[in-house]
Design a protein around this nucleic acid. Sequence first.
DNA 1: CTGAAAGCGCTTACAG
DNA 2: CTGAAAGCGCTTACAG
Lengths: 346, 346
Amino acid sequence: MSTVTIKDVADYAGVSRATVSRVLNNNVTVADDLRQRVLDAAQMLGYQPNRAARRLRANVSDVLGLMISDIQNPYFISVVRAVEDTAYARRMSVVLCNTDEDPAKQQIYLRVMQAEGVAGLIVSPTHVDDGATLRAFAQTQIPIVLLDRQVDNAAFDAVVVDNVRGAYTAVEHLINLGYRRIAVIGGSPHLTTGRERLRGYCDALRAANLPIEDRLVRIGDFKIESGYALARELAALSHPPRAIFVANNLMTLGALRALRELRVRVPEDIALIGFDDMPWSGELCPPLTAVSQPTYELGREAVTLLLNRLAEPNAPFRTVSLQTHLIVRESCGALLQRNQGEESAL
Amino acid sequence: MSTVTIKDVADYAGVSRATVSRVLNNNVTVADDLRQRVLDAAQMLGYQPNRAARRLRANVSDVLGLMISDIQNPYFISVVRAVEDTAYARRMSVVLCNTDEDPAKQQIYLRVMQAEGVAGLIVSPTHVDDGATLRAFAQTQIPIVLLDRQVDNAAFDAVVVDNVRGAYTAVEHLINLGYRRIAVIGGSPHLTTGRERLRGYCDALRAANLPIEDRLVRIGDFKIESGYALARELAALSHPPRAIFVANNLMTLGALRALRELRVRVPEDIALIGFDDMPWSGELCPPLTAVSQPTYELGREAVTLLLNRLAEPNAPFRTVSLQTHLIVRESCGALLQRNQGEESAL
DNA sequence: CTGAAAGCGCTTACAG
DNA sequence: CTGAAAGCGCTTACAG
């Protein structure tokens, strides 16, 4: 298994290195017997073309860059898995980095990716203002596809979810259940996901002619701790909400912890719906009603967009928007037995 | 941001390309003024050495391969995060792949990693019998460090956890709580983790002079579904166990789901302790008592071992074994109020 | 259809 | 201490 090069294969097959290369990248016609000899030799010797050399010479790369903004988030895990699977099927590798929601780190990684010679980049940007940075990077001719979040003032291929509608549906569900005082724990306002899910919340209240109360609108940063802190604040209100819509999975986990500690019963005292489903959402306490994103499809679609872009560099940019769906379990109170009188008090 | 090469820097600084290279890899003395000119020029032009070229020529690589056996498992997420962080601090990138517990896929990825020219490899092997495969790979001079699992008949650097002791502690805890009929849902017997955690279970029972009952020993495959199926089987026994030790996080989640569906109360009817803690284990239903692994340290230590190996290729192989600790919450029944009479019936 | 040769962007003996 | 040159393993015009 010590390194066998194209020269070894050429010698073994009795042809030139050019011919070996041609056969293996089969873009051009090679006589059948030569082709066969080369294939046999490569097989025999266990030849594996050196990717670094290939990349250097041909400006052709088999590696995909994946820049995730928070690798601890279960949401992204599923995406990573999908990207990995899809890349594997195309015989590409993926180099992964975690920008940790930090624009500076993202900037550094962008340069690493360039130096690494990736064929293309899938990135969940750290900020709506990353447009300029990303556009500058795109000058290198390395295509970018945005994942999960969009960016202002710049056009890229993107795959996202219909956040407004997802949030709307969740809040509407609470309203239909009879809740009137519904709070929101929103996500980062410098992220499109944060903005859009908040919009969905507001739209749903307005559509039901319900007031939007300032004190019931709390903005966090999509991390566990902020969900925890904000849920505590809401529960401590003199006139606390009867339901909360939480804009992502991590904050939902934080909120659940806070309410547990406070001995606030979910859903009896306060109902909860979270954005993002997780494989174990049904085992949480209580089983979580959640807006489920098609994470696997998101990742797969991102790779597809990237590959299409590589094939057609000048095609118009395309945004693929996928729908979410609500999974109703117990935290929203849908299973609660209540009488009419009680309902009007929610 | 279009590509600037070493030639551009050399021209700009008025030196040869060799000098630029020397300054940037500062292994050799260069006159201070030249050095400064080069540094300025590089800074000025935003020079980023082409990694593919570097790898090709110098056989020096800045990329670490990370081969994970199940990227969906929250356990590995934390490890990935640690590896990523640590690599980043050393200015290295990581190329990730998911072998999906499949030896064939692992084999393919091994070749990809070689072609990719990684500096070294961190791998959680798919099977104790992967020794031969990995040893063959090691012929390429690319060092390997094993993570989480060991392999038979082959020596590598490795970072693992004391599984026997971790499992022992968990089962001992159950025994101390008064449980006598304790079942186990074990992991894959072709993995050292599966074997060792089972051993810990057996050791603890023996130490307490408790019998090991065949029907209370169920072996799964570390996936959710097997935890689910096996928990159902145990609960359906004519004389079901009063406590279960589950050998990993995913199977624990499956067991929780099964018991919920069966309306078996945890811990009142059957107590549960799982191997592996998760950030949201406290929010599960009920809050989970678990054997916590120092996942972040595991990942960090793996990178350290790899870097040491790169620096000293002939040092003796080293296995770093980290300790786990038990986090007591509610699923084990520690918080249950019981009287003496009841205890003797467990 | 096939081979000899140039060259991708680096690093590193080899001279001086 | 510094530069000219060779060469890492490929691919791709350029001839034939």
